[in-house]
């Protein structure tokens, strides 16, 4: 018998603290599988965010840092510049990267910092109990938008990939989703490319992963996956927004 599916070595054998059906676990696994496959575990340095995934240092079996809220790209910049032979990545949510850390991510991309960003977008502030995030969809009900997000009052959701694409420093930008097995396979390919871009020294790489938050969306996990496909993907189209040498 040959194992066709088992736990990647770059993921410590401890239970995740995430809610049932939370796709952070899937994304952690994909990143760990990519680190395994590229054989960079010994030189990988990750920077965690503030948010649900604040405990990433408990899960990844490589060197890990934990940045202040939104500042992971600034911390990663420091690590990569001092230790340019390391493979540096940040793992950030939308409350971290697209709200308080917008300045950091925009300037890291503009400077063309040579690290990889895994941006988990679940369209809500999950750790704090489900408040509206910059990425919350129009009409989406959250704790702070009980009648749905209204563009007149709350403005429009932020599209990070589209926002970073015009910056010359960004080399690879892609948006993927993890709501079904097919998309999970595609997500892993994009994450692998984003690490490869860094290994090749081509510049800033970011993969935006559309993720589900069944708890704060108020849905059971299977319905949350459908909600993601039916609501998030139309507003946040999947695909590669920028690859080295080619811009969409």
């Amino acid at each position: 018998m040959r194992k066709v599916f088992s736990r990647p070595e770059s993921l410590r054998d401890v239970p995740f603290h995430y809610c049932p059906g939370c796709t952070h676990g899937v994304i952690h696994r994909l990143v760990a599988e990519v680190i395994d496959e590229l054989g960079v575990r010994d030189i990988a340095v990750g920077v965690g965010p503030v948010g649900c995934s604040v405990f990433t240092y408990e899960y990844f079996d490589c060197d890990m840092f934990q940045g202040s809220h939104g500042r992971a790209p600034a911390v990663a910049t420091g690590i990569k510049r001092v230790l340019p032979d390391r493979v540096v990545f940040t793992y950030q949510g939308d409350g971290d990267l697209a709200a308080i850390g917008t300045g950091e991510i925009v300037h890291a991309a503009a400077r063309g910092e040579k690290f990889t960003v895994i941006f988990v977008n679940n369209a809500i502030y999950a750790m704090t109990g489900g408040q509206m995030a910059p990425t919350t969809l129009l009409g989406q009900v959250t704790k702070t938008t009980p009648y749905g997000r209204d563009k007149e009052i709350n403005g429009f959701p932020v599209k990070i990939c589209e926002m970073l694409a015009p910056l010359d420093g960004s080399a690879y930008l892609a948006r993927v989703a993890v709501h079904n097995p097919k998309n999970i396979i595609n997500a892993k390919k994009a994450i692998k490319k984003a690490f490869q871009v860094q290994l090749d020294g081509l510049g800033f790489a970011l993969v935006e992963v559309l993720s589900a938050c069944p708890t704060n969306w108020g849905l059971d996990p299977a319905s949350a996956m459908r909600w993601l496909a039916e609501n998030m993907i139309p507003y946040y189209p999947l695909g590669e927004y920028k690859t080295p040498g080619r811009t969409l």
């Binding site: 018998m1 040959r2 194992k3 066709v4 599916f5 088992s6 736990r7 993921l11 239970p15 995740f16 995430y18 059906g21 939370c22 796709t23 952070h24 676990g25 899937v26 696994r29 079904n180 097995p181 999970i184 396979i185």
Partner: peptide, 21 residues
């Protein structure tokens, strides 16, 4: 059938899949 779809989507790495060579 050992397609491993369950394991792919499992967020908690509960599932292992084995297939004959």
């Amino acid at each position: 059938t050992g397609c491993a779809m369950c394991a792919l989507i499992c967020p908690d790495l509960v599932i292992e899949v084995e297939k004959e060579e």
